[in-house]
């Protein structure tokens, strides 16, 4: 696919998604406000009840900051569900048109996915401003220009990795009548082992090497810690290389699943 076509698909999808104003604000307020309120009250009471000053290396203020970072950047990493997703294309026959076009299916969908993220980027920037001006972030966790730039790369890789995992799972629709449960399982595993539900440092020490061997930590934990300045440049570079290697593995899996799936695709209807 030519870069020009990729950008055009991205831009069209972005314009399309930005035209849904109500969805934009609802998503922003509910997606951010509610999630943040829940973790704030939950962790406040956990610190209060346990009497501990520190859990998983964070005090209450640090923990709240971690969640702020994770919820904000999570918007840029998680797949924004929309009409015409991969499994919908397979179930409803929308895939037909892409098989007839002289353009690859994956780049097309990834460009659409990135375009669909544009509202999330706007929301991210809006909330980042709110956080910067109105919330009390501990000085040692305030992002510096360097950590912000490093985080940008970590978020971009996290986004690609998450999309590749999502894509491979959605392709199961070639065989299964429904991929919804797989989707839920994916989110549960990714959010638990990726640091969205709790920081990975909260897990017992013996589990940490296992968590580090898996790709999930690159979704939320790694970019959040990079943003909060907790990761040194050398570790950051190493992390990016490992995450990109995981991208390669998932891309190969996706390619294999696609090839087999499309061989027996029925195109809906006889």
């Amino acid at each position: 696919m030519s870069p020009r076509l990729f950008l055009q698909v991205l831009s069209l999808e972005a314009r399309n998604r930005l035209s849904y104003r109500a969805e934009f604000w609802l998503n922003a307020l509910v997606g951010f406000g509610v999630e943040f309120a829940v973790v704030y009250f939950l962790w406040s009471s956990m610190f209060r009840e346990s009497g501990k000053q520190e859990i998983g290396g964070f005090d209450l203020q640090g923990m709240v900051t971690y969640y702020l970072a994770v919820i904000l950047l999570g918007k840029l990493v998680r797949t924004q569900r929309f009409e015409g997703g991969v499994s919908t294309d397979i179930y409803e026959g929308g895939l037909n048109r892409y098989l007839v076009f002289p353009a690859g299916y994956f780049p097309f969908k990834y460009a659409q996915h990135l375009g669909g993220l544009v509202p999330a980027v706007v929301q991210f920037l809006l909330f980042a401003l709110v956080v910067a001006f109105f919330l009390d972030v501990p000085p040692e966790l305030r992002p510096s220009p360097t950590s912000a730039l490093m985080a940008l790369a970590a978020i971009a890789v996290a986004n690609l990795l998450y999309y590749l995992l999502d894509y491979a799972i959605q392709l199961v629709a070639f065989w299964a009548d429904n991929v919804w449960s797989l989707d839920v399982a994916k989110w549960f595993v990714a959010s638990l082992l990726g640091g969205f539900m709790v920081p990975l440092s909260v897990f017992p020490a013996w589990l940490v090497p296992w968590l580090e061997a898996l790709p999930f930590r690159f979704f939320f934990d790694f970019p959040a810690r990079v943003l909060l300045g907790q990761i040194e440049p050398a570790e950051w570079a190493r992390g990016l290389v490992v995450a990109l290697a995981w991208c390669g593995v998932l891309a190969l899996v996706g390619r294999g699943v696609w090839r087999r799936g499309v061989e027996q695709y029925a195109g809906v209807g006889i």
Binding site: N96, L99, V100, V262, E263, Q264, Y265, A266, G267
Partner: peptide
Amino acid sequence: IKMLAGIIV
């Protein structure tokens, strides 16, 4: 038609 258009094998 779908076979001739290359959609299905």
